[in-house]
Computed example of a mutant assay.
Amino acid sequence: MIGRAQAAWEIMEKEGGALVDRPRSIAAGEIRSRGNRILLEGSGERFRRLRRAVHTHLQPKAAETYESIQMEDAQSVMLDVLDDPKNH
Rank of each mutant, 00 (worst) to 15 (best):
E67H: 08
K14S: 07
G29K: 01
P23S: 02
F47M: 09
E45D: 08
A53V: 09
E13H: 12
N36S: 11
G16T: 04
G16I: 03
N87F: 14
R34L: 12
N36Y: 11
I26M: 00
I31S: 12
A8Q: 11
G42Q: 03
M1L: 05
I26G: 04
D84C: 09
L19F: 10
P23H: 15
A18T: 07
H55I: 00
R46G: 11
I69Y: 13
E67G: 11
Q59W: 01
H55F: 12
V77C: 04
M78V: 13
M71W: 13
A74M: 14
R4Q: 10
P85S: 13
R48I: 07
W9E: 06
H88M: 08
R46P: 03
H88V: 15
Y66D: 03
E30I: 02
L39M: 09
P60I: 01
V54M: 12
R49F: 08
E45H: 05
I11W: 03
G17M: 03
H57E: 11
S68I: 02
A28K: 02
R46E: 05
L40A: 00
D83H: 10
I31C: 10
R22E: 07
T65I: 01
V54P: 00
V81L: 15
L19M: 09
V20G: 02
E67F: 10
S33T: 12
G44D: 01
E41C: 06
M1I: 07
Y66F: 13
E30K: 00
M12Y: 12
A7M: 00
R49E: 14
D73M: 10
Q75S: 03
E67Y: 13
H55K: 12
Y66S: 07
L19K: 01
M78Q: 13
A7W: 06
L58G: 04
A18V: 03
N36L: 05
N36F: 11
L58K: 02
R49D: 07
R46T: 09
L50I: 06
A7S: 05
W9V: 09
G16Y: 06
K86Y: 14
E13F: 08
S68F: 05
E72C: 03
E45K: 04
R48P: 02
A63P: 00
M78D: 14
W9A: 12
E30Q: 13
E64L: 02
V81N: 05
P23M: 09
